[in-house]
Design a protein around this nucleic acid. Structure first.
Lengths: 349, 349
DNA sequence: CTGAAAGCGCTTACAG
DNA sequence: CTGAAAGCGCTTACAG
């Protein structure tokens, strides 16, 4: 591969001059010289070495995104948002699926640091794991010391997201919507307590209940994984338990998908006998039968704003925390509870 | 950030020695020296600069994957496979969503080349666009000249995939399965003809028809986009047309999802009045109502093998083309045509 | 077993 | 407007 040295030689100029024209930096170069350099670069199919440039700047135009799993539609949507914002500025995005395993997350963050990526975005929630967080925060300090930007899109060990959503208010508003349909006995699939975001959503569930004047029934709050299987398992538990429930709210859509599937297998009709609602509004949510009621999060926008926040940091700006809006979306999986009076103006959309 | 120079100084050794121990290369260093260097590295929170190392090797342990859209479950699955294979060797993966736009693909490939990524994997099908392909193949040559590996997972302008699936046989076997159910009037949503993979699948459809002794009805072959909207549109066209059909086969699952949704809207029952089948078996395919019959492609494995193929190339091996198996999966969206005799041993699984 | 030195491909003060 | 030279942080023959 041709280097700037060869381009300069072919054009009969110094590497300094050649560099100035190919980087199209704002520096005076005579038109003839410029043309000669450009022609030489074209002839040699010159493509600058980003590694050399990065070494000099001690930073490379790449943003790393740490996700749970790129295959989870929540995260692919966020990553797409990051990419959409990153592309115009010539940034590339590295995706890291940590599977929420401390060792994987740790090694990814270290690798990203070793690559001197300009920014690292933590898309998923932090894990409450002291060992992990010690090492990760050491790397975060290292990245920032080096002039890199670090942004969180979810609550984490260090506190709130720099760019995030209001999880508490989001779940609370779904509780409100379901309560407005007439539900009083509301079960909740809470996800893993080790995840900060799940804790926030659980707090939102409790707040929603309190706001609606409903006494919480601890038997109806289930701690689960954050995937479909967790939703299916929880339905079995709920069905086997003795606490009444007419609605199941879930801390994310994957849980709701699992719950929907298991409910169908067990012959429980949704929303006839039980209403189900998710959280996130991943793209499949509208495709299930019945279509899932959920809380829509602006996932792509979250990724986009996350990257823009990082750029702001890189530019040395003082940045305020940002909270993106969420919205309750009632589809076909929620309805008044069996035997509930139909109130005008309420019901599924 | 501490450099190897500082580590060496703190340990009281040369950078050469320090480098030898931190890279744990197979080179004799006395145990005491080694311990001192390791301790210095730890004390300084030393993380090697991958850019400097990459500049020296003129290659960085990163693999770029060009996809249509990371949000499309087909591609997120493939990317996950690449990542699973890449991680153990310390490789990072860059995802590039080209949206099948020539300018985007072009600029991504150039950026990847400028980063001297060790490998570039084209996950999606090539576009039949001469301008694009000229420039892309120039970059491919450049990457290979530089010792990098380039792998295609789909047919492209340059020929067959190095690691791929047999699209022709895959669709043909779905035609066979549907014909075995008793269908004779089979419509086909072909996807965009500008995509090499869509052409291969169309050829497979024709071959399947011929094998089953069914005369092709050109009115029932529709050229579409490759997304849900294309499937919905095609259903409208089919319904408005005068060619009879009892089954709709689709060149990918997204088309089938769109067809399913529009058929439901139009009040056509699936599989009662019309059978529908997709191709790919993306994760949502099992979640729709009715669950979609499709051809399962080992997507994650495709990504994994693609990366391993790249590593083989990097190691200088002479590699054979590889074709991964596909499998017909009959779920609930296919059944015998209305009024067809039920033959024992046939039917949905 | 250890170290001095060259060099990977750039950019950028600095001098003219 | 142009160029000579230093230096970013590594690794690796080469010499001892």
């Amino acid at each position: 591969m041709a280097s700037i040295t060869e381009v300069a030689r072919l054009a009969g100029v110094s590497t300094a001059t050649a560099s100035r024209v190919v980087t199209s930096v704002d520096y005076p170069v005579s038109p003839q010289t410029r043309a000669r350099v450009l022609e030489a670069a074209r002839a040699l199919d010159y493509v600058p070495n980003a590694l050399a440039r990065g070494l000099l700047k001690s930073r490379i135009p790449v943003v790393g995104v740490i996700v749970h799993d790129i295959t989870d539609p929540y995260f692919s949507e966020v990553v797409r948002g990051v990419e959409d914002a990153a592309t115009p500025g010539g940034y590339l995005v590295i995706t890291c699926s940590s599977d929420r395993k401390p060792e994987r997350e740790r090694s990814y963050v270290r690798l990203l640091r070793s690559m001197r990526t300009a920014a690292v975005i933590f898309a998923g929630s932090g894990l409450d794991d002291p060992d992990l967080n010690d090492e990760v925060s050491r790397h975060v300090v290292g990245i920032r010391d080096n002039g890199g930007a670090v942004v969180h899109l979810s609550p984490h060990a260090g506190g709130q997201a720099e760019v995030g959503v209001d999880n508490v208010a989001g779940i609370a508003s779904m509780v409100e919507a379901v309560a407005a349909l007439g539900h009083r006995d509301i079960a909740y699939l809470a996800g893993p307590t080790s995840l900060y975001v799940a804790r926030a959503r659980l707090a939102g569930f409790r707040r929603g209940l309190a706001d609606a004047g409903i006494a919480a029934d601890q038997r109806n709050v289930l701690h689960t994984s954050f995937d479909r299987q967790g939703g299916a398992l929880a339905v079995d538990l709920l069905l086997a338990g003795d606490a009444p429930f007419t609605a199941i709210l879930c801390a994310n859509d994957l849980l709701a998908l699992g719950a929907l599937a298991r409910l169908a297998e067990r012959g429980v009709s949704v929303p006839g006998q039980v209403s189900v609602a998710g959280f996130d509004d991943i793209s499949v949510a509208a495709l299930t039968a019945p279509a899932l009621s959920t809380v829509r999060l602006p996932l792509r926008e979250l990724g986009r704003r996350g990257f823009e926040h990082a750029i702001g940091l890189l530019d040395g700006n003082e940045l305020a925390r940002e909270v993106l809006p969420s919205e309750v979306v009632l589809r076909d999986s929620t309805a008044p509870p069996p035997g509930a009076p139909i109130k005008p103006g309420k019901g599924t959309v």
